[in-house]
Design a protein around this nucleic acid. Sequence first.
DNA 1: GCAAATTACTTCAACATTGAAATACTTTCC
DNA 2: GGAAAGTATTTCAATGTTGAAGTAATTTGC
Lengths: 151, 151
Amino acid sequence: MGSHHHGPRREVTALDTYIKLMRAAESVTARAHVVLPRRITFSQFSALEALYHLGPLYQTELATKLLKTGGNLTLVVDNLERCGFVARSRNAADRRYVRVTLTTKGRKFIAALFPKHAARLTREFAALTAAEQVTLGRLCKKLGVGKKTPA
Amino acid sequence: MGSHHHGPRREVTALDTYIKLMRAAESVTARAHVVLPRRITFSQFSALEALYHLGPLYQTELATKLLKTGGNLTLVVDNLERCGFVARSRNAADRRYVRVTLTTKGRKFIAALFPKHAARLTREFAALTAAEQVTLGRLCKKLGVGKKTPA
DNA sequence: GCAAATTACTTCAACATTGAAATACTTTCC
DNA sequence: GGAAAGTATTTCAATGTTGAAGTAATTTGC
């Protein structure tokens, strides 16, 4: 199963593994997504979750955590601000920085939602034993390192 | 490392593994992406690659392969068609179906690009041994099953 | 044989995403 | 102290993405 590609065994294995990795990531995300109320998107949830667990962050920090661009964060924070979930404030010492903080409404919202998300993910990952999860995490981590190999 | 979440160990392990899975998928994809010429997007590449390895497909089949919605495929195929990489044709027997076929130009394009993509992915996955890749694939597959668990 | 249900695709609005250009502010370096 | 370089954010155009509504074609059930 998998890549439909014929070539050196190393390539076949890599492509096959790649497809399975992508499918797993997409399918777990899609299934975890169902706990989110329809008015909130996955990006918005991720931003709220980061603020909830890490405290107020500058937009650049948020972009780094979520692996997104600055332009993207501007829009996502715009939308969260419009919902009343977060507030922006300029740093007085360095006015380039915009600090993003959860409002009381935002905190209540994510505090109620996160446990459902965690429970849902736990249920999804119950397809693997604890030991298998640790192994999976270890292998993923070896792949995930940002070893900036040039084009 | 990981989730910044405190709770039952099963939840902590699941959330931690989830984060590593997402990071690995995103980071491998991003790094594989660098071989693509700037005028082609990842979605377009994926569609071309499916047509290249599987032959002409109806849009519904393409949507299923790529795990995307029908509305999305309409746009991606629109853009590929505008580039001259694919052609649409109605099925005469059942005129609801639109068959998407690579043009000669599209075939040449993907035939030249795919080996670079495969080589790049192989290089990325060289962070793992062949045995580790097989293990990773097996664990991902256990997660990826579309076991439609209701909300 | 025809109305109803189904299926494939398109269209649309809203939000996401990137990459590049523009803006605003700060730091560096003469 | 002021120009140049650097940094954080915003804006913009193009594409992606979903989900819902709409259209066209076919199949089903009576």
